[in-house]
């Protein structure tokens, strides 16, 4: 699927190929299958939303793509190279901002550069990124002094400062109030359109997926397998009452077995 916003040859993103990935956890001796032969390829610069019922295995899939754990079966490649472990070119924003409470905003954002020993070389990126997410005035604030939306912005900046090829978002807006959520949806789309990285976004909000992504993958109940893979060829900014999107939403609700309740 080709993203509308970019010419594939010039974008800096990465191609992520998930090949026949199955995953099991060990739950008190009994195996708990979580992913069931998941197959998809996210092209460079694509914005892929992953939708599925709660507990089906979406976060697990993201952890595998991030390299935090190896899959039980199958393989994941980035630009054809197998993913063997975490790498700062693939960064994750979790549902909880998980800022380090002992570091102020600037030092939290600088975390990746510091860990990679690049702080001296690329320290200016920290200020730029703070400016990008509109938190330049809070550089010295500590996490406990921030609102939920601000904290999530810091988490976003902490990821973006590394100029990632892949941004992995695990329900990053899930805990925010609806107004903050709307504005941050727009911000993330703008950041992506400007920088051109690949995005994998897990969300439980169908509307959010339809407003933001170029492609929506719908998962079944646990163990998750792909139920549908839907391209959203719509220019930005999108409107929630666009008839095409409304039709798509009905379709997805049907796939999730929720059409009767809406």
């Amino acid at each position: 699927m080709v993203s509308l916003a970019h010419d594939i040859s010039t974008v800096p993103g990465v191609e992520i190929a998930v090949k026949d990935v199955s995953h099991r956890f060990d739950l008190e001796g009994a195996p708990l299958p979580v992913l069931d032969r998941v197959n998809f390829t996210a092209q460079r610069g694509e914005f892929v939303a992953l939708l599925g019922p709660s507990g089906c295995g979406k976060s697990t899939l993201l952890r595998l793509v991030a390299g935090l754990e190896p899959p039980t079966q199958g393989g994941i490649t980035a630009n054809g190279e197998p993913i063997a472990g975490p790498d700062p070119s693939r960064v994750v924003v979790f549902q909880d901002p998980t800022l380090f409470p002992w570091r102020n905003v600037r030092d939290n954002v600088a975390l990746g550069l510091e860990a990679q020993g690049l702080l001296k070389l690329r320290g200016a990126r920290v200020e730029e990124t703070l400016l990008l997410v509109g938190l330049e005035d809070f550089a010295k604030a500590f996490p406990h002094q921030l609102s939920g939306g601000m904290a999530q912005r810091v988490a976003l900046a902490r990821a973006l400062v590394n100029d990632p090829d892949l941004l992995i978002l695990d329900e990053p807006l899930g805990k925010l109030d609806s107004l903050t959520r709307l504005s941050m949806q727009g911000e993330i789309v703008n950041l992506w359109r400007r920088a051109g990285f690949t995005v994998l976004l897990v969300t439980h909000d169908i509307e959010e997926a339809l407003l933001m992504a170029t492609r929506v993958i719908v998962f079944s109940e646990r163990p998750a397998s792909i139920k549908a893979d839907i391209a959203i060829d719509k220019p930005y900014p999108r409107h929630r009452d666009d008839p095409d999107l409304v039709a798509r939403r009905r379709e997805i609700l049907g796939l999730l077995g929720l059409d009767a309740s809406w």
Binding site: A66, V92, T98, A115
Partner: peptide, 16 residues
């Protein structure tokens, strides 16, 4: 444990 996940995805070494 999430602190470790965050740090590892950002390229942290064991010493870090």
């Amino acid at each position: 444990a999430a602190y470790y996940d965050v740090a590892r995805t950002l390229g942290a070494s064991r010493a870090f």
